[in-house]
Amino acid sequence: MFEQLLYILCGLSAGLLGGYLGLGGGIIMVPFLTVVAGVDIKIAVPISITAIVVNSFSASNEYLKKGMVDLELVIILSVFMVLGNITGSFLSSYIPSTYVSLILTVILLYAAFSLLKGRKPVERMTFKDNRTRYLLVCTVLSYLTGAVGALVGIGGCVIIIPVLYLIIGLPLSTARGTCSLMLGFSAAAASTVYFLNGQIDVSILPGVVLGIILGAKFGGYLGTMAKPLVVKILFFIIMLYLAYRLSYQPIQELL
């Protein structure tokens, strides 16, 4: 009973923060399930990936209503993130939990400092202006992000949002809205792989899904009104904290 309430709380917090920041919530769910609920990371990752698909239903609708989604970019990025996700899902069976946690730590630190550093005055890159460069940047980065995202149980938006913001020149709100819709598609592929391999723990999933579907609805609504500075600071604080919590144990093991 107490465990089931923990799972709802996990989904709720991931949905609220994930929806607000335009993330899937994996960066909150995986540490929550492993650190607070004591679930093994190999079980937490498939749960997180499946819940991310549900998060996308909730949060992205709020961004769509406000016109904060680049629909063409969603499709381009999704295709290559799915390819990356499939690669990452198959690789996850061969990579130990220690290294998976360390990869997540590096990703968190990179994203946090990129956002805090601030934005260079780049002109918004569009498909019509420079197709070759635009497609090259989008496809390569989304493929790599998809692969790493599936390995550590996150939708990959924690990397893609800074990329869209800093390199493509997308406004931060549009970058978050675009990712919010896209991650549903990319995570669905990885979730299918986990589901067909019987890697999803059915006793944990209902609570997490119930929490995230409600949390993301409100998180997404609040996120459409969020100020960029608040978003940046929240990103930075959360990521540094999670990086510390996730890297502490693996580093102790390695030393």
């Binding site: 999803i200 059915v202 209902p206």
Partner: peptide, 25 residues
């Protein structure tokens, strides 16, 4: 509904979760 069945220790709740995942996908 599935969550409520889990709390009530309903035997078939696990199977229903699998259908729920199919619904999501």
């Amino acid at each position: 509904v599935v969550y409520a069945l889990f709390l009530l220790d309903f035997a078939g709740a696990s199977d229903l979760v699998a259908y729920g995942i199919v619904l999501i996908l």
